[in-house]
Write a protein that binds this DNA or RNA. Structure first.
Lengths: 231, 231
DNA sequence: ACCTGAACACCGTTCAAGT
DNA sequence: ACCTGAACACCGTTCAAGT
């Protein structure tokens, strides 16, 4: 195979935190979380590990910076339209960016729970919260509602992304779903009546449509709770 | 300090997959994902790595087995009451088990996306789905609705758990929230008006209550969508 | 069938030394 | 100030050898 990712690019360019993060993202995209290694990063940037450690404290910080950079660019443009439409747009942006960078799913889970003060959590909360605050509900509920949206979106987007890390890259989404569905159909009828019953739906379902249906479920619940009326 | 976790217990006991998984869970609980190492597992069980590899294929399978064992016991008893009450009960069981075993949050995220055919995904889907099917909506919606509940619960429970892995174990939940809240208050007013506005709410919020409020939001949305009426 | 333990390849990180 | 590259401690995994 052609050694794919180009190595030892322009050695004239000075090393910078930005270039390191950029290279890290490329490696993560190409081979998942396991693909990011100081050895290959070093090779890709044509330096030694010491050079990288001068710009970045450790691997955790590098992962954090990569996550933040990708999420920031996905949320860069403020969505237009009604608050409901804008919430759907933000949700879809996140769905898509996780789909493009599957390593984000795990990384977001880790970072939101570990360091919610840091940049990525406020970024997400702000994007949902601004729209939530326009929905007309009592301010005392804003934080809870915005958080709930964020949780759903991250959970759903993460699970729906074909994880590039270990899932065989040759397996298409359709083949993947087929395998899952078949496994479900073989479960014990005593213990898994529901899962067996929906196995066929799972085989043909549309990730994106199902994801949006969940967002709409939450929006319905919010509108009902706040206005007592149908959205 | 007293060397905490007991080592080299009864060497008479034959090694078994069950005992290995049990020891792995203890290590994960004690020191997070980084705490599970074949070196210390080997020491704890008073054997060599080869012995463990005879019972378990690799570290991934061990993590999978540990996750499945803990989740299975949390979902063992079928909840009573109305479908809505039962859904809340399942959700709370998961919230609590992730709170007790914080490493579950990341592990569930990884496993649901990587191998949804395997035991843990069907287990979760079945627990929610059985109740969803009693809610009276059209069967064509069951899979989507049960999945949405599952996504929210996993996302929220995971983020709310104080991650034992790297978060300093001496920091209480209150101190943790205070630090987060303070960080949010210091954000740029231009870029983060919403996050700054809710920082004070975040400082005093009750994880469990907020988690349940999100579940109720979803339940409201489901009931409204399916019956056109308030729950 | 089940276990031992030395060995292998690989990883993140450090640090004295250079420019 | 920024970079080099050898070295360290540690990790998951293998495997010939034992019982």
């Amino acid at each position: 195979m052609p050694s794919s990712t180009r190595k030892a690019q322009r050695r004239t360019d000075a090393l910078s935190r930005e270039r390191i993060v950029e290279a890290a993202i490329a490696l993560l995209d190409a081979a998942g979380e396991g693909g990011l290694t100081f050895r290959v990063l070093t090779e890709q940037l044509a330096t030694g590990p010491g050079a990288i450690y001068w710009h970045v404290a450790n691997k955790g910080e590098l992962l954090e910076a990569a996550t933040d950079a990708v999420v920031a660019s996905a949320l860069a443009t403020e969505p237009a339209g009604s608050p409901q439409e804008a919430i759907r747009a933000v949700a879809l942006s996140l769905f898509d960016v996780i789909d493009e960078h599957p390593w984000l799913a795990t990384q977001l889970a880790v970072q939101l729970s570990r360091a919610p003060g840091k940049s990525v959590t406020p970024r997400l909360l702000e994007s949902f919260g601004r729209q939530v605050s326009k929905l007309g509900g009592p301010e005392a509920d804003w934080f809870t509602v915005a958080s709930a949206l964020m949780y759903y979106v991250l959970g759903a987007a993460g699970q729906n992304s074909v994880n590039g890390a270990t899932a065989t890259p040759t397996t298409s989404r359709a083949e993947f779903l087929d395998a899952v569905s078949t496994a479900w159909e073989r479960l014990d009828p005593e213990d898994y009546p529901f899962t067996r019953a929906v196995a066929e739906q799972a085989r043909h379902h549309d990730d994106r449509a199902q994801f949006l249906a969940g967002v709409d479920l939450m929006l319905s619940g919010i509108t009902l709770t706040w206005t007592g009326a149908r959205p």
